[in-house]
Design a binder for these strands. Structure first.
Lengths: 231, 231
DNA sequence: TCGAGGCCGCGTACGCCGTACGCATCGACG
DNA sequence: CGTCGATGCGTACGGCGTACGCGGCCTCGA
């Protein structure tokens, strides 16, 4: 009975199914390969059928981003005594993991953490509250949280853009800094050219290292601000 | 009378002219409206003529970004005694101005400061050298410079994405944080809801304020790192 | 039981896009 | 003057997002 609803062929076309299929396509082939026709093909369905459930491609992208956000929740209901540094660590790890697994999210929505839907507001609330321990006011605490989000997002963008935006192209254009560190560069940079002598310079082109270093600077800065406010 | 060369109609088609026209289009109508046909029309030329001077649209985007970089040089040859904080300030101001005037650059190339061409390597050299005053080694100094670049770029991306990527759309989707600050939000955020009481919260949605606050935290962090290294 | 009405999947078509390919023109040079 | 390379361009192909309307099915009231 109700053949279209649970028939042998496939389930009914639904927003969730479309979003899932779209996420699968974007993960597999990059956001550049994400087209309405492609999603429809994967679902064994006509392209225009999608528009019964989605306003347009932009709205679909928004739905996709929000779904991904839901799949990487913050531990907002965990009542353990989180220090603000604990929270920074867990936020950085979760968001970084999110961007690594679904790089197109970085590009799909340019505001960090999928653009302030209800879910991300709850996350922000939990995250920002941690900074109140520093003795700063709520505005400053929220600013600190937003700054961390912005940093993670910015580093993720750089890490991800070449791999995903232009998907493939065998050997892409030159990377001046990497060349310089590898000693393949004409010396037009008096100080920087010394970088080719040291192995530690590899850190400079490792995205995760850039992420952690930046977070460390920010945390030191947060602490200094806390002391300035008379701890 | 060599009509094509200096005839009444127009100058000869050159890479520079194409790049300039493309920049003009991107500035005026956003990068979404930048198409090869549109550039060609503005130049009074056939679309395929552009390909005599440019490999493809990607290469054109790269040329455009590099041209913009050249138009916003750092004072690398100024021999005044710049402190590292002076350099941070000037770098932030210049890059921010660049991104404000040519927002598409933020999206066109995802790495900060147009992706490490020769020119930007010289800029990085000058910028990073300033941090050596903190007593840190060259790798750490370069890391600090990259972190500042990344922060400016990340904030610019957020500031610019809505205005430029999707160009126009009369009243765009909801901004949860702005709604909350304006008191237009259901209270699902126990701490954050207090933000609607204070005027200072406007800072949280002002991009330039987010930029400066983040830079202040970073600078405090840099200073702390310098002290840790025994000043 | 049957008719009506709505929901839903889909086929067609339009106007964009980037760009492969080959032709026509024209200046420079032997 | 003949040749040749550089340059501008017209046509065409495959792909995109999506407006529009048709037809079939499910549901529900009579």
């Amino acid at each position: 009975m109700a053949p279209a609803d649970r028939g042998s062929a496939g389930l009914r076309l639904t927003l969730e199914a479309i979003v899932d299929a779209a996420i699968a396509v974007a993960d597999r082939d990059g956001i550049g390969a994400l087209s309405m026709r492609r999603i429809a093909d994967d679902l064994g369905v006509g392209a225009m059928s999608l528009y019964r459930h989605v306003d347009d491609k932009d709205a679909l992208l928004q739905e996709m981003s929000e779904e991904i956000g839901r799949r990487f929740p913050y531990p907002v209901t965990d009542t353990r005594p989180w220090t603000w540094r604990d929270r920074v660590q867990v936020v950085v790890d979760i968001d970084w993991e999110l961007y690594q697994r679904h790089p197109w999210v970085v590009l799909a929505y340019s505001s960090p953490r999928h653009s302030f839907g209800d879910e991300s507001l709850r996350c922000l609330d939990w995250f920002a509250a941690g900074f109140l321990d520093l003795g700063v006011d709520l505005v400053e605490a929220t600013g600190m949280a937003l700054t961390v989000w912005s940093h993670v997002h910015g580093v993720a963008l750089v890490a991800v853009s070449d791999d995903l935006l232009r998907a493939e192209k065998p050997s892409e254009g030159p990377d001046g800094l990497a060349d310089l560190i590898g000693g393949r560069s004409k010396d037009l940079a008096p100080h920087l050219s010394a970088l080719s002598q040291t192995t530690a310079a590899a850190r400079l082109v490792d995205p995760r290292a850039r992420l952690d270093d930046g977070i460390a600077y920010l945390c030191d800065g947060f602490e200094a601000q806390g002391h300035a406010n008379g701890d």
